[in-house]
Design a protein around this nucleic acid. Structure first.
Lengths: 337, 337
DNA sequence: ATTGGCACTCAGGGTCCAGGAGTGCCAAGG
DNA sequence: CCTTGGCACTCCTGGACCCTGAGTGCCAAT
């Protein structure tokens, strides 16, 4: 249906349009790329491509621009992920090397991604449910209030206030702390819920009410992945693209954690770099943007996702290369710490 | 120099321009406000106001718009802080009531401010140095690595990794933990530095090196107020104002923590609501914006600052009212917890 | 000091026109 | 059957032009 040359034409259109941001016509096409045919031939090909829905012309007698479907084909079959230059790789390494805890790793990753892709970067905090418990700490604040601190193997620290139904003494706290750590240390967070369910048997009955309060807070922390934040950076890069009035919508969408979670959650394969183009995004305000994302995590496990968001008219090969490279490096850093 | 009517004219110009975003002329001025004089008289007044630098005309034969200096006079002498409506106050209360820890308080405050003012909200995390230590926790991760958790009376939790020069045993940790809490509990963070300096005497000499590592991390945490973050929200509201090309600059400035800190740091009086208008801002990218800010904190002490940022053409009385009210409520919440 | 009158300025919006880029179609040639 | 040159057609873009209306500054009269 689409012979090789037509595909080459589509590829050329995408590349040209991405770099110039102007509809590309048959003549400029044969000039810039060395297609050994005449403009008229190209025009015939373009007519077919347009009929199939891969390109459109903004108005009669203008060049063609790719449709979402056109970009999709380009990404799937016509382009290769572009590896970063050696200089860029070094930049990533040095930039991430100074990070000392999870917060700073995430912050730096966002800045880094935004900077090298010149797009909006989105980085999800590593999900709780897949990491394991390293330590649980109970800190008495008053006699009816505890601070619960939960530390995971990824260096993440969750803190929650626990309001107790009754007063609690130091020795009870010590006991409770011992039970918690004995039973939960090393457990995957996904398994914590079932373990906690059996815990009440292990505490003396007088302490049950207080212990129950602690347990329920732990469950909340683990189950409601309420703290699964997504950090956004490089929003200023959006002003280069011409969303005209849509900019407002995009910025609004980027401020909604829920929306961002949904956006990142959509994509299927965890390990590979996935691309969602324009209308493929379920999120209303982001129908004119594309997302290039991938999973990342310590070693080979995928704990969370990161990516870049930009106009559909985006340099996909480069973006994919950057996202892949950054994800790998962050994975290394996470594995080391 | 400026009689009452001229001041009234300036006030009217500011109010009209803020609400319509169009240069305001002498005729529309006498129509909308009940000044009992003719347009010609107003024109004379406006000529004086322009000569004094309070207003300008964008081009000949257009109406006048206020200058930064004009807004300044308006804010200082011609306007009163506009209290919020009862409904708005209730909204604030219910919105903030659900917050359970410092993070969520800050998050909610940002959203709230952005929403009711329809501007960009900036909220600084309560500064460490003025709060007091409530608890210090040491958690062994490996035999050469500790997690230091520092909890303040404002519910803030600071976490730092400590790399130890040598291996450390459980009993040493327990001892160190006891010393730290005995000496630092209840201290203001500002005083921690001097107290920590005397601590080495209290630990046995074999543990000195490890203890020293812990102490230096504590000092870093307290002194380098590196974690004094500023949270930004409502950036989407900027698209309503017409910065034309300056939008990019503004968005960029808002992403730089350093810039935000400088911006908030500038203002003098801690307790009162202060306004910095346009060119009064030292920050380059924000010369066309105004900041309405105030200090806030538990009770009457001022721990940090919060405010809203918008175009100089901004409804100052309302913004000031909102900022003041939100700061008070947040102060209450902080005092309670 | 205030006011009505008047001439002047100028941004914004409309129309008109020419140029040019790009297309679709067709008939001819490999 | 694919390719190609030719040609008529479309229509966006930018410039020139004009007109209108809002708004001003100045001046003489009250």
């Amino acid at each position: 249906m689409l012979d090789d040359r037509k595909l080459a034409v589509l590829r050329a259109i995408v590349e040209d349009f991405v770099s110039t941001n102007e509809p590309v016509g048959s003549k400029t096409l044969v000039d810039r790329h060395n297609l050994d045919v005449s403009p008229a031939t190209i025009r015939n090909d373009m007519a077919v491509l347009e009929e199939q829905g891969y390109i459109v012309q903004p108005h009669t007698s203008a060049g063609r621009i790719p449709t979402d479907q056109g970009y999709r084909l380009f990404v799937d079959r016509l382009s290769a992920v572009k590896p970063l230059s050696a200089a860029e790789r070094r930049a990533i390494e040095t930039f991430l090397a100074g990070a000392y805890d999870l917060d700073s790793i995430v912050m730096r990753t966002v800045r880094l991604l935004a900077q090298i892709t010149r797009q909006v970067a989105v980085v999800q905090y590593p999900s709780l449910t897949r990491s394991t418990v390293r330590h649980i700490e109970l800190v008495p604040l008053t006699d009816r209030r505890l601070l619960l601190v939960l530390i995971t193997d990824t260096g993440r620290v969750e803190q929650r206030m626990v309001e107790l139904p009754g007063a609690i003494g130091d020795e009870s706290i010590t006991q409770l702390r011992a039970v918690l750590n004995a039973c939960l240390d090393g457990r995957r967070l996904a398994d914590v819920a079932s373990v906690v369910a059996e815990l009440p048997d292990r505490v003396s009955s007088v302490e049950r009410p207080n212990a129950a309060a602690v347990f329920s807070v732990i469950l909340e922390t683990v189950v409601e992945r309420h703290e699964e934040r997504v950090v956004v950076g490089g929003a200023a890069n959006l002003t280069q693209a011409d969303f005209s009035r849509g900019l407002h919508e995009v910025l609004e969408a980027l401020e909604e954690q829920v929306v961002l979670m949904r956006l990142l959650g959509e994509s299927g394969d965890q390990a590979a770099v996935t691309v969602r183009i324009g209308s493929e995004n379920e999120v209303d305000g982001l129908r004119s943007t594309s997302l290039v994302a991938t999973g990342y995590g310590a070693g080979s496990q995928s704990l969370a996702r990161l990516g870049v968001l930009g106009p559909t008219r985006m340099d996909y090969p480069t973006a994919m290369g950057a996202v892949r490279a950054v994800a790998r490096y962050v994975g290394q850093i996470l594995a080391e710490s």
